[in-house]
Each structure stands twice: as C-alpha cells, then as structure tokens.
Amino acid sequence: MQTVHIEFMVNGKEVALDVPAGATALQVIREMLGLKGSKEGCGIGECGACTVVVDGKAVNACLLLAAQLDGCRLLTVEGLADPAGLHPLQEKMIEHHAVQCGFCTPGVLMSSYALFAEKANPKREEIVAAVAGNLCRCTGYQQIITAIEAAVPGENR
C-alpha cells in the first residue's frame, strides 16, 4: 500500500501524516485524526453529513482524496467553537430547535460557516442554496434555515 506524506492545518494546528493513497479525507479525519464530528451518511456526495471547510470552501470529505489535503487549511466542526464559547451558528441551532438526532448538524454548520465566510449578509434564498446539499431526515428544514438566518453576522450586531 502506497502512503502519501501530507502536511496541512487542522482547526488551526499544523499536522503531518502519512496517509494511504486511496483513503478519503473523511476516513483520515475520523480514523487517523480522531475527529468524529464529521459523519459518513452516504459516502457518495449526496447527503452532506461529511461536509468540512477546506481553504474556506465547503466540500464533501467523502469525495475528497486525503492526499489532496496537502497544503490546505481544514476546518471541521470541532474547530468552530472557541474557548469563549460556541459559535453563533451553534448557539442559534440550539435556540431554534434545529437539532434532533444531530447526524446532519455538523455538515449543516460547516456549509453555513462557509457561506458566512463568503458573504457577510446572505439572504434566505442564499442560505437555502448553501445547505441544499445537506439532507436532514428528522428536524425539517424550516428550523434549520431559521436558525442559520438568526446567526447571520449582520443580524447579530
């Protein structure tokens, strides 16, 4: 089995790893880095449960080759909160009852985080488009969208 040496940033910390050439980023994140927040739902790009942010953009970790993380900045759901407390997105998800089983939640958070990074004041329809690739089978999308809307940075200040 060929391994590939990669160096990248995970939630602000530098890491160097030798990963199997055929491993997905999701396998490496969960199994080698022990970050179990990113979930595997479908494994084929359809559910968004594995969504992480790479160089500022939301991507499906199940469709990313781990070797392709080399030189990148990776943010997973574990990197959202800081010592001061939860990220506003997380706060609002709780406040608006947007979490039931929670399986989709990390992916929804990361898609929304990437949207906020790109656009300071996204409109509701932009939020809907940003999370269209995140399936939730229990909560229902209204609460999720409302929670994200409530967390829009412009609205908080």
């Binding site: 790009g45 968004g48 939301a58 991507v59 488009a129």
Partner: peptide, 9 residues
Amino acid sequence: FASAQIRNK
C-alpha cells in the same frame, strides 16, 4: 449543478 459542496470541487 449538484450541491454547493460538489460545485466547489
């Protein structure tokens, strides 16, 4: 085209 995550890749 697909989803935002797929469009990014």
